[in-house]
């Protein structure tokens, strides 16, 4: 009953928007204005089927590899840098600078260096996602509780044991925040990099539809991007609720 209530609350606004949109565009003759009915129709007739495998799968592959690498490298580097005052001092200014550069700006350069194949796109996604994860991990490590850190020391835990049992779990809430921030960045960079120079992928196909004035399929492609975003956010929440159950439980407790 409670779940049903939450679900209907979550769906109420989107449904309302779609209805308004539907009514508003019913008598629209401008071919560039999207209509929900047409969009849905094109989604199933144009996209579902071989096009999905040909265009969406390569996109998801780049997204997965780029984001996955950013998570692994971001956490590892973040733990190491965060644990050392010297490393933090050395990297701080440089990181602030690099972070201020919007990743899409790097795309032309990356294309020149790495070519127009998967590597440049994966690398761009990796680069864009790395910073929120890396910086949040560093912050997470830096702000571990001092009493807990002393406890860990008095029980003789050093090196790997200290990272595994104390530093990593203590920083995990911040690490998850970093990953959550990286998800939309990954999708944006995936699409942008494919629109720029690619031979396949969602972004590439959407641009192609636009250039050939197939507005319905173009909008359906955009819808797919939105759906991928929702799916990833949902998946992330599921994982987060699992690995941070203790964190949310503790916070609940403190509120009471």
């Amino acid at each position: 009953m409670k779940a049903l209530k939450a679900l209907s609350a979550a769906l109420a606004l989107p449904i309302l928007i779609v209805i308004v949109w539907w009514l508003g565009t019913m008598n629209e003759t401008n071919p560039f204005v999207p209509k929900p009915g047409q969009m849905l129709n094109d989604l199933f007739t144009v996209w579902v089927g071989p096009l999905m495998a040909e265009q969406v799968v390569p996109s998801l592959y780049r997204l997965g590899v780029g984001l996955g690498a950013a998570i692994i490298v971001g956490i590892t580097l973040g733990l190491l840098i965060g644990a050392s005052r010297l490393a933090r001092a050395l990297t701080g200014p440089a990181f602030e600078f690099i972070r201020a550069v919007p990743p899409p700006v790097l795309l032309p350069v990356l294309l020149l260096i790495l070519g127009i194949d998967d590597r440049s796109k994966i690398f761009l996604i990796f680069l864009g996602c790395l910073w929120p994860i890396l910086l949040n991990t560093i912050d997470g490590v830096r702000s571990v509780d001092s009493v807990l850190a002393d406890t860990t020391s008095t029980y003789g835990m050093q090196g790997w044991a200290r990272f595994r049992w104390f530093v990593f779990p203590a920083a995990l809430p911040r690490i998850m925040t970093g990953i959550r921030l990286a998800l939309p960045i990954a999708i944006i960079l995936m699409v942008v990099s494919e629109m720029y120079a690619a031979l396949d992928g969602l972004g590439y196909r959407i641009m192609l539809f636009k250039q050939t004035f197939q507005m319905g399929p173009m909008w359906a492609g955009i819808l797919i991007i939105g759906l991928i975003g929702i799916l990833m956010a949902g998946l992330f929440r599921l994982v987060e609720r699992r690995v941070l159950a203790w964190y949310y439980g503790q916070r609940e407790m403190e509120k009471q």
Partner: peptide, 14 residues
């Protein structure tokens, strides 16, 4: 072994 005054902060909450 050292038992801290701040017991709430000396146990691993995870």
């Amino acid at each position: 072994a050292l038992v801290f005054q701040e017991y709430g902060r000396s146990l691993y909450p995870w």
